[in-house]
Amino acid sequence: MTDRPEKRLRLPPGAPLPLGAAPGGILVLAPGEHEGALFVEAALRVEGEGHAPGVAPTAVIHAHGRGAAVHAAGDDCTLQLVGLVLRGGRAELGAALCLDGAMRVEAEGCVFEAGRADQGGETVGGLRGALHLRGCRLAGGALLTGIVDATFEDCVVEGDLLLREGAGLTFVGGEVRGHIDLRGSTTRAPSLKLSGGAKAKVRNHSAQPGAVEEAP
């Protein structure tokens, strides 16, 4: 792996992903597989080369079982992911994308493929910070827990979407093919807002339920 990307760095397939991100840096990943997990603690934009709305992404970050494919752990910064496939992760929380820093992650037109996660976040896992996904496909389940605030806009979640602890989710349009499953602790409850014709079956815990709001 290289140390840090320049402000804008194009990586051909097979080129190592950088260990850290230069604040404000842009990584452009050429179509093909890019090996390695990306650990992000500073502002960064990662985009698949030639990405376009409605076109399946072809630039792949493959973790090969070594943590989350992208792990966002910084504070007070933003990570943007555009037109990427995140694949092959294994993690405690969020195999494709793990957000446990107090930062913001925005993803557009990405595919999060199922890896293996200890608690159910086979694609995306969030513990704190803010997560905004637009037009993304989550090819498996996701887990939002702790105090993460998430918005999923026109996204498809192919597995169960678990809302735990004090997580908040606004789900606009799109579809959850499994269930949205809410369970709080004895001291806090998750919240869910469905709108924009979102298709989802909601399963709420009987003893420690979350708050569910449905809007047109």
Partner: peptide, 15 residues
């Protein structure tokens, strides 16, 4: 606190 031995037995994070 979390809702039962069954709940924490599902796993969690060290973080």
């Amino acid at each position: 606190w979390k809702g039962g031995y069954d709940v924490i037995g599902e796993g969690g994070t060290g973080d």
